[in-house]
């Protein structure tokens, strides 16, 4: 094999490799593409957010904007903007979860020591 043909075959192999790499890179995109959220996924996210909101409310821990966010997510879903609806619903669900945990964590809240120490 001449020096030239070795280089040529390496180049060829290099080209083939990058083609494979390129395909690999595009594959996940294809996967995501096929997973473009549909209506049922959006509605499921909204339902989960509403459940989390109600759970927070049941312990007095609901945050101010959660219900509004869920309403907005419903509007987005009705307009066919499922990805945006899911994102907002997920934020609302997170608020519900945080509000619930917060309320449970604070159920024994009491006078701060810097005040109460004065009575001892």
């Amino acid at each position: 094999m001449t020096e030239d043909s070795i280089i040529a075959s390496r180049l060829k192999r290099g080209f083939r490799n990058s083609l494979i790499l390129g395909l690999l890179a595009v594959l996940p995109l294809g996967a995501a593409w096929s997973e473009t959220p549909d209506q049922s996924q959006a509605l499921a996210s909204i339902e989960a957010a509403e459940a989390a909101r109600q759970r927070a409310d049941s312990v007095g821990g609901e945050w101010r904007d959660t219900a509004t966010m869920i309403e907005q997510a419903k509007t987005l879903a009705a307009d066919g903007r499922y990805a945006a609806a899911i994102e907002l619903a997920n934020d609302a669900k997170r608020q519900g979860e945080l509000g619930y945990d917060q309320a449970l964590g604070e159920q024994h809240a009491d006078f701060p020591a810097y005040v109460l120490d004065r009575s001892r």
Partner: peptide, 17 residues
């Protein structure tokens, strides 16, 4: 009433106190 007053709440995580 006392628990309510001193409980942190909301997104800002503040109590009345």
């Amino acid at each position: 009433g006392k628990r309510f007053y001193f409980a942190r709440r909301g997104q800002l995580n503040f109590s009345c106190a």
